[in-house]
Amino acid sequence: MKRIAIDMDEVIADANLRFMDWYERDFGRRITLQEIHGKFFREVVSPEHREHTIKYLHTEGFFKDMAVIKDSQEVVYELSKKYEIFITTAAMEFPTSFIHKYEWLKQHFPFIPWTHMVFCGDKSIIHADYLIDDHSRHFKRFSGQGILFTSPHNVHEDWNPRVNSWKDVADLLL
Protein backbone atom coordinates (compact mmCIF):
# COMPACT_ATOMS: atom_id res chain seq x y z
CA MET A 1 0.00 0.00 0.00
CA LYS A 2 1.39 3.39 -0.96
CA ARG A 3 1.79 6.12 1.66
CA ILE A 4 0.64 9.72 1.70
CA ALA A 5 2.02 12.21 4.21
CA ILE A 6 -0.23 15.22 4.77
CA ASP A 7 0.71 18.51 6.39
CA MET A 8 -1.73 20.14 8.82
CA ASP A 9 -1.59 23.94 8.75
CA GLU A 10 -3.07 25.42 5.57
CA VAL A 11 -3.67 21.92 4.22
CA ILE A 12 -6.27 20.42 6.58
CA ALA A 13 -6.37 23.13 9.31
CA ASP A 14 -7.13 26.75 8.42
CA ALA A 15 -4.32 28.75 10.07
CA ASN A 16 -4.98 31.80 7.88
CA LEU A 17 -8.48 32.13 9.30
CA ARG A 18 -7.00 31.98 12.83
CA PHE A 19 -4.50 34.72 11.94
CA MET A 20 -7.33 36.86 10.56
CA ASP A 21 -9.51 36.31 13.64
CA TRP A 22 -6.76 37.04 16.15
CA TYR A 23 -5.52 40.08 14.27
CA GLU A 24 -9.03 41.51 14.16
CA ARG A 25 -9.45 40.74 17.88
CA ASP A 26 -6.18 42.50 18.77
CA PHE A 27 -6.18 45.42 16.31
CA GLY A 28 -9.79 45.88 15.19
CA ARG A 29 -9.06 45.38 11.49
CA ARG A 30 -9.97 42.35 9.40
CA ILE A 31 -7.25 41.26 6.95
CA THR A 32 -8.84 39.63 3.90
CA LEU A 33 -7.77 36.71 1.75
CA GLN A 34 -7.37 39.14 -1.15
CA GLU A 35 -4.82 41.13 0.86
CA ILE A 36 -2.69 38.07 1.60
CA HIS A 37 -2.85 36.76 -1.97
CA GLY A 38 0.78 35.96 -2.85
CA LYS A 39 2.07 36.90 0.61
CA PHE A 40 2.49 35.59 4.12
CA PHE A 41 0.13 37.08 6.69
CA ARG A 42 2.98 38.88 8.47
CA GLU A 43 3.79 40.75 5.25
CA VAL A 44 0.44 42.56 5.09
CA VAL A 45 -0.04 43.69 8.67
CA SER A 46 0.99 47.14 9.86
CA PRO A 47 4.75 47.18 10.53
CA GLU A 48 4.18 48.08 14.18
CA HIS A 49 1.99 44.95 14.56
CA ARG A 50 4.32 42.53 12.80
CA GLU A 51 6.27 41.30 15.84
CA HIS A 52 3.06 40.80 17.83
CA THR A 53 1.51 38.86 14.95
CA ILE A 54 4.54 36.58 14.54
CA LYS A 55 4.22 35.67 18.23
CA TYR A 56 0.77 34.19 17.57
CA LEU A 57 2.43 30.98 16.39
CA HIS A 58 4.09 30.61 19.80
CA THR A 59 1.02 31.59 21.82
CA GLU A 60 -0.87 28.97 23.81
CA GLY A 61 -4.16 28.21 22.07
CA PHE A 62 -3.32 29.48 18.58
CA PHE A 63 -3.57 25.97 17.12
CA LYS A 64 -6.62 24.98 19.20
CA ASP A 65 -9.98 24.59 17.47
CA MET A 66 -8.91 25.78 14.02
CA ALA A 67 -11.45 25.45 11.24
CA VAL A 68 -11.13 22.40 9.00
CA ILE A 69 -10.18 23.00 5.36
CA LYS A 70 -13.18 22.30 3.12
CA ASP A 71 -13.58 18.67 1.98
CA SER A 72 -10.38 17.52 3.71
CA GLN A 73 -12.10 15.14 6.12
CA GLU A 74 -14.09 13.35 3.45
CA VAL A 75 -11.22 13.10 0.95
CA VAL A 76 -8.62 12.01 3.52
CA TYR A 77 -11.06 9.35 4.73
CA GLU A 78 -11.49 8.06 1.16
CA LEU A 79 -7.73 8.16 0.64
CA SER A 80 -7.27 6.10 3.83
CA LYS A 81 -9.13 3.23 2.16
CA LYS A 82 -6.55 3.10 -0.63
CA TYR A 83 -3.36 4.52 0.96
CA GLU A 84 -1.58 4.49 4.29
CA ILE A 85 -2.06 8.03 5.60
CA PHE A 86 0.33 9.92 7.88
CA ILE A 87 -0.26 13.42 9.21
CA THR A 88 3.10 15.20 9.30
CA THR A 89 3.32 18.56 10.99
CA ALA A 90 6.21 20.74 12.08
CA ALA A 91 4.96 20.90 15.66
CA MET A 92 8.48 20.96 17.08
CA GLU A 93 8.91 24.47 15.67
CA PHE A 94 5.97 25.60 17.82
CA PRO A 95 6.11 23.63 21.10
CA THR A 96 2.86 25.10 22.45
CA SER A 97 1.05 23.60 19.46
CA PHE A 98 1.64 19.92 20.18
CA ILE A 99 -1.29 19.03 22.46
CA HIS A 100 -3.72 21.22 20.52
CA LYS A 101 -2.73 19.69 17.18
CA TYR A 102 -3.02 16.19 18.63
CA GLU A 103 -6.48 16.88 20.12
CA TRP A 104 -7.59 18.59 16.89
CA LEU A 105 -6.58 15.55 14.86
CA LYS A 106 -8.37 13.16 17.23
CA GLN A 107 -11.53 15.28 16.96
CA HIS A 108 -11.59 15.96 13.22
CA PHE A 109 -9.74 12.94 11.78
CA PRO A 110 -10.58 10.13 14.25
CA PHE A 111 -9.84 7.49 11.62
CA ILE A 112 -6.14 8.44 11.65
CA PRO A 113 -4.47 6.39 14.40
CA TRP A 114 -2.04 8.08 16.78
CA THR A 115 0.70 5.90 15.29
CA HIS A 116 0.24 7.82 12.03
CA MET A 117 0.59 11.31 13.52
CA VAL A 118 4.13 12.59 13.07
CA PHE A 119 5.17 15.72 14.96
CA CYS A 120 8.50 16.64 13.45
CA GLY A 121 10.79 19.37 12.20
CA ASP A 122 12.51 18.19 9.01
CA LYS A 123 9.97 16.33 6.89
CA SER A 124 12.67 14.62 4.83
CA ILE A 125 12.65 11.90 7.51
CA ILE A 126 9.21 10.85 6.32
CA HIS A 127 9.21 7.79 4.09
CA ALA A 128 6.14 8.16 1.89
CA ASP A 129 5.24 8.14 -1.78
CA TYR A 130 3.56 11.56 -1.62
CA LEU A 131 3.74 14.61 0.63
CA ILE A 132 0.88 17.12 0.42
CA ASP A 133 2.14 20.40 1.85
CA ASP A 134 1.75 24.15 1.37
CA HIS A 135 5.51 24.76 1.64
CA SER A 136 7.61 23.39 -1.23
CA ARG A 137 10.75 23.71 0.92
CA HIS A 138 9.67 20.41 2.49
CA PHE A 139 9.95 18.71 -0.90
CA LYS A 140 13.64 19.48 -1.46
CA ARG A 141 14.95 16.54 0.58
CA PHE A 142 11.77 14.46 0.56
CA SER A 143 12.31 11.22 -1.37
CA GLY A 144 8.76 10.91 -2.72
CA GLN A 145 6.59 13.22 -4.86
CA GLY A 146 5.73 16.57 -3.34
CA ILE A 147 2.24 17.89 -4.07
CA LEU A 148 1.86 21.61 -3.42
CA PHE A 149 -1.44 22.52 -1.75
CA THR A 150 -2.37 26.04 -2.75
CA SER A 151 -2.38 28.61 0.02
CA PRO A 152 -2.33 32.41 -0.32
CA HIS A 153 1.41 32.58 0.36
CA ASN A 154 2.34 30.15 -2.44
CA VAL A 155 0.01 31.17 -5.29
CA HIS A 156 2.87 32.56 -7.40
CA GLU A 157 5.15 29.59 -6.83
CA ASP A 158 5.79 27.34 -9.79
CA TRP A 159 5.38 23.71 -8.70
CA ASN A 160 3.91 20.69 -10.37
CA PRO A 161 1.84 18.92 -9.27
CA ARG A 162 -0.22 21.56 -7.49
CA VAL A 163 -3.71 21.11 -6.04
CA ASN A 164 -6.08 23.96 -5.26
CA SER A 165 -8.56 22.01 -3.14
CA TRP A 166 -9.25 18.63 -1.64
CA LYS A 167 -11.46 17.88 -4.66
CA ASP A 168 -8.27 18.29 -6.76
CA VAL A 169 -6.48 15.87 -4.41
CA ALA A 170 -9.28 13.36 -4.93
CA ASP A 171 -9.03 13.75 -8.71
CA LEU A 172 -5.26 13.23 -8.57
CA LEU A 173 -5.00 10.33 -6.14
CA LEU A 174 -8.32 8.48 -6.01
Rank of each mutant, 00 (worst) to 15 (best):
I125H: 08
D7Q: 01
G38T: 05
R137Q: 13
Q73G: 11
F149L: 04
K140R: 14
D129M: 00
H108M: 01
D133E: 06
F63T: 02
V169I: 15
F19C: 03
W22P: 01
S165T: 13
D129R: 01
Q34K: 14
S97P: 01
V163G: 07
P47C: 08
P95N: 10
H116W: 09
S124I: 04
R141V: 00
E10I: 05
Y83K: 08
S143H: 12
D71N: 14
E157T: 14
E60F: 04
H58Q: 11
C120V: 15
S80C: 08
F139I: 04
T59C: 00
T88Y: 03
A15P: 00
R18K: 15
R50Q: 12
R137Y: 11
Q107V: 00
I6F: 06
H138T: 07
E74H: 10
F98K: 13
H49R: 07
I69A: 07
W166N: 10
T150V: 10
F111K: 09
S46R: 13
I112E: 03
N160C: 10
W114V: 15
I112M: 01
V155D: 11
I31R: 06
P95D: 11
I31Q: 02
N164T: 12
I69C: 02
S97F: 06
I132K: 06
F142D: 00
F63Q: 07
E35Q: 12
D71T: 02
G28S: 09
H127D: 15
G61V: 04
I4R: 04
F111W: 12
H127A: 12
I4Y: 04
E51N: 11
Y23T: 05
H138R: 06
E35H: 02
D9E: 14
R141A: 13
Y130C: 01
K2L: 04
Y130W: 04
I54W: 05
P161N: 08
I99L: 14
I85Y: 06
N160I: 09
F109K: 09
I69F: 03
D133M: 06
T96R: 10
A128Q: 06
W166T: 08
S97Y: 02
F139R: 07
A170Y: 14
M20S: 05
W114E: 15
S151I: 01
I6S: 02
S143D: 12
H127Y: 05
E93W: 14
E35N: 02
G146L: 03
V76T: 08
E103R: 13
E35P: 08
S143T: 12
I85M: 06
V68L: 09
H37M: 14
D171C: 10
D171Y: 11
I36R: 00
S124P: 04
M92S: 12
N164K: 15
F119W: 11
E24P: 07
G144S: 10
I126M: 12
Y56P: 00
F98T: 13
F40I: 01
I85R: 07
M92L: 14
D122A: 14
K55S: 15
Q145G: 09
M117R: 13
G28M: 00
T150W: 03
N164W: 13
P110A: 05
Q145S: 13
H156R: 13
A15D: 03
